[in-house]
Amino acid sequence: MLPVTAEDHLNGPIAVLANSTAGRGRYSALLPRLLDGLAAAGRPIRLLTATGPAEAEAACRAAVADGAGALVAIGGDGTVHRALQTVAGTDVPFGPIPAGTGNDFALDTGFPADPLAAAEVIASALRDGRSRAVDLARMTGGDGSSERWYGAVLAAGFDAIVNERANRMRWPRGPRRYDLAILVELARLRPRRYTLRLDGVPHELDAVLVAVGNCPTYGGGMRICPDADPTDGLLDVVVAGRVNRRTLIRVKPRIYQGTHVSHPLVRSFRARTVELSAEGITTYADGERSLGLPVTISAVPGALRLLR
């Protein structure tokens, strides 16, 4: 097989990763119209098939290796996260079409909330040869052998612990499982000792919630890192310290407006590189189960070319 060149990518087909179960399937009937909208770019469309996260990443890698000129993800943040593992740090442009329960990365980087409108924006960018560079966050595991990219926010505290419990539960199904996991973990809430190194400067602190944001929002519009900007080459770190159950319940609704950062027990930092460690925490990046602590997270300026 001949190697794929940059020129091959320039005119290659549009590879489309579509998650039919995203958003509880409410956008699945739109798929033919979305593909028609993308075809207005004048490129062939290649719809990728995958039955799970690992297959989705493998399908994206194979499509790009085969000369895809662009990669589009139709789904939520989880689908975007899988696609990012292939296009991060490459010259292959990417377009997210928000069709999931949480569409934080797409909305935070300026795409319309309406999937059909987002497809039109992507097709127009492809026709015009237009793309915009944005930052991504690159995670490296403590042993140095594991690497993941994310676009929105890394959760490494209470929210990650809730997700981990919910994923272990077999009952109930649907959103109620997450609600029950919150109640269980609220009853067990306790501050944990974290070590943060921000651009090499160490911080020892006790906290119940730690988030590292490339973008402002996670969890479907919660502005956990309200000042994060995916074009500034920096990561925003938000830490809720020794917060008890009552205070956490009171403060958590304020995250939707981003006003929680004014609470005296919440601290904010900004750095290019964040080293984060604590005992017994598995992180969640873009809402997806990711690496266990310790991890090193680096802002990578211009790591992604967005079709906008």
Rank of each mutant, 00 (worst) to 15 (best):
R173D: 13
S124D: 15
P112Y: 03
V266D: 01
L31K: 05
R173S: 13
R250N: 14
V266F: 11
G258W: 01
I161L: 10
R33Q: 14
S298N: 11
E164I: 00
P32V: 04
L34I: 10
R24G: 15
A56P: 04
R193L: 14
L17E: 13
A73T: 15
T231E: 12
A68I: 12
P32W: 04
A68W: 07
E279H: 14
A160R: 15
P13H: 04
A156C: 13
A166K: 03
A207D: 12
G174C: 09
P191G: 14
T101H: 07
I97P: 04
D91Q: 13
P98A: 13
T79W: 06
P32S: 09
Q85A: 10
I45F: 05
M1K: 04
R267I: 02
G292E: 15
P3D: 14
G241E: 00
G280F: 14
L276A: 02
L180M: 14
A119L: 05
T231K: 05
A123M: 11
D159V: 10
G258L: 07
L205G: 10
H81S: 14
L84A: 01
D108W: 04
A156S: 13
A137T: 05
R24H: 15
A118V: 09
A58T: 11
A117W: 00
A29M: 04
A65S: 15
R267M: 05
L235V: 13
G233N: 08
W149Y: 15
L35P: 05
L34V: 03
T90W: 04
Y256M: 06
R170P: 04
G110Q: 03
V212G: 01
